[in-house]
């Protein structure tokens, strides 16, 4: 497959106005702005050179310091035997603006994974056909994979920070 730089240029040519940066790494990836995500993904899905026909993995990553939640997509092409092509997008962490366009209309396989990210990170996927919690129960409040989530029962010895007496320590 083309290098990440080349993929970036080709997406930019097809989707004018998109903000795309190359994230270096063992597997280089492209960070796309949320507004142009669907158009960019549609391009790599339909382009005869790439044909990214399978979305294997949709992941959420919480960055409380930067105030963003990053969503990482892994695409493969079964037809062209290419991949993974990794796209990322960053959405604001705060509850009111935590929205991302859904890829479920393009890839049916993204449906449950987007529901999982909605459940655990609180990202609302606009255009998702059935956005509701998938792992936690319906009455659950909060998004437990966010790093500032405080779980309830802190009643074990470790949680209570029981003072260790000097004679109990093992040297």
């Amino acid at each position: 497959m083309d290098a990440a730089e080349r993929v970036r240029e080709r997406i930019l040519a097809a989707v004018p106005g998109a903000e795309i940066e190359v994230v270096a790494g063992v597997q280089p990836s492209l960070r796309v702005d949320p507004a142009h995500l669907v158009a960019a993904v549609k391009f790599v899905k339909d382009d005869p050179d790439y044909r990214m026909d399978m979305c294997t993995c949709v992941s959420g990553v919480d960055y409380p310091d930067s105030g963003v939640i990053e969503i990482v997509y892994h695409f493969y092409s079964v037809e062209k035997r290419l991949g993974p092509m990794i796209l990322r997008t960053c959405v604001p962490r705060e509850e009111a603006r935590c929205e991302c366009p859904s890829l479920t209309p393009l890839y049916r396989g993204a449906e449950f994974q987007e529901r999982e990210i909605f459940d655990l990170f609180g990202v609302r996927f606009t255009g998702h056909p059935d956005l509701r919690r998938i792992l936690m129960w319906d009455g659950f409040v909060g998004h437990p994979m966010r790093k500032d989530y405080v779980p309830e029962d802190q009643d074990s010895l470790e949680d209570m920070e029981v003072a260790v007496r000097p004679e109990d320590t093992i040297n």
Partner: peptide, 20 residues
Amino acid sequence: YGTNGLVPRYNAEIWKPWTP
């Protein structure tokens, strides 16, 4: 099912958290 876990958190008749 409660808002962030089970209600009650434990059956007080058979289990109690450790107290110093």
